[in-house]
């Protein structure tokens, strides 16, 4: 069975909620990435989301923007981030999902010698390489379902899950369409806004998730703005999983250098795990 589906089915049987930490590939540097993946797994992650940095991350708030910029400045590319994942893959039992923007996906494998001017660029090469690196799914925050057919077809061929996002502003017909398109799980954006830490989770979230549950039985994970164990526990009561990015990256930065960041990440995720299982 497809690894994401298997993971969520197991969690449902065990009546547990998925903890989905997000890190940026190549941040603080590329050597940290495989070690971080293994540390997050050991600390209790059920699925790991890893960003492939892009120069213009327009769905992201300041913390993840800065992480992208750091990773790019230290030489991260889509190919070497996938290689970093691949080097940890033999020891990873939890599924890894990549998050990146549409342009780096369709430019993957571009050959500068060819000077190709044809429009398009297919996501197939990225997806094939991601699959070979042990990745189970792909999230593209600037790719709504209207433009998502190319991704869905290529992902199906490569054997990857194409995860789509739903938002508090999505009307019911769109929720239905997103739920049908999304594989693995549905990424529900908890706030009208960009990624980043917030003092509280909006009360309307419960209502939003309920609307989504009416149209689908697929697992729903909630992300954007969840920063404390208490918030994570509250959100987990109404969803199948919580995605935590900015707060984790912030904690890693407090940890100092590479080893400190990895230790801080593990501690942070372990605390979240405890809150979800309580």
């Amino acid at each position: 069975m497809e690894p994401l589906r298997a993971a969520f089915e197991r969690l449902r049987r065990q009546r547990r909620k998925a903890l989905v930490p997000f890190i940026m590939g190549g941040d603080p540097d590329l050597r940290a990435t495989p070690a971080l993946l293994l540390a997050l797994q050991a600390a209790g992650a059920d699925v790991i989301e890893i960003g492939v940095p892009f120069s213009d991350p327009l769905a992201d708030g300041p913390v993840i923007q800065a992480a992208s910029a750091r990773a790019l400045a230290r030489g991260a590319t889509p190919a070497n981030v996938l290689r970093a994942i691949a080097s940890a893959a033999p020891r990873l039992r939890v599924p890894v999902v990549c998050l990146t923007y549409w342009n780096p996906v369709i430019q993957f494998g571009f050959n500068p010698g060819s000077r190709a001017r044809r429009a398009g660029g297919s996501p197939a090469r990225f997806l094939t390489a991601a699959k070979a690196s042990g990745v189970s799914g792909l999230i593209v925050p600037d790719l709504p379902v209207e433009e998502g057919d190319a991704l869905r077809r290529a992902a199906a061929r490569a054997g990857l899950a194409a995860v789509f996002l739903a938002a508090p502003t999505s009307p019911p017909q769109r929720l239905r369409r997103i739920a049908r398109a999304s594989e693995g799980f549905i990424y529900y954006v908890s706030v009208t806004g960009t990624t980043g830490m917030r003092a509280q989770v909006p009360p309307s979230l419960v209502q939003g998730i309920r609307q989504l549950r009416v149209v689908t039985t697929k697992p729903v994970c909630v992300g954007f703005g969840i920063s404390t164990p208490a918030q994570a526990a509250a959100v987990a009561r109404v969803t199948d999983g919580v995605i935590i990015g900015s707060a984790l990256i912030h904690a890693m930065q407090q940890g100092g250098g590479r080893a400190g960041a990895i230790r801080a990440a593990a501690r942070f995720v372990a605390r979240m795990r405890k809150a979800l299982d309580a």
Binding site: P144, L165, R174
Partner: peptide, 15 residues
């Protein structure tokens, strides 16, 4: 033709 389209976060699609 092959250009244009709508490549934005879901949050603004309804708008």
């Amino acid at each position: 033709g092959p250009f244009g389209g709508t490549f934005v976060p879901e949050t603004v699609m309804a708008a």
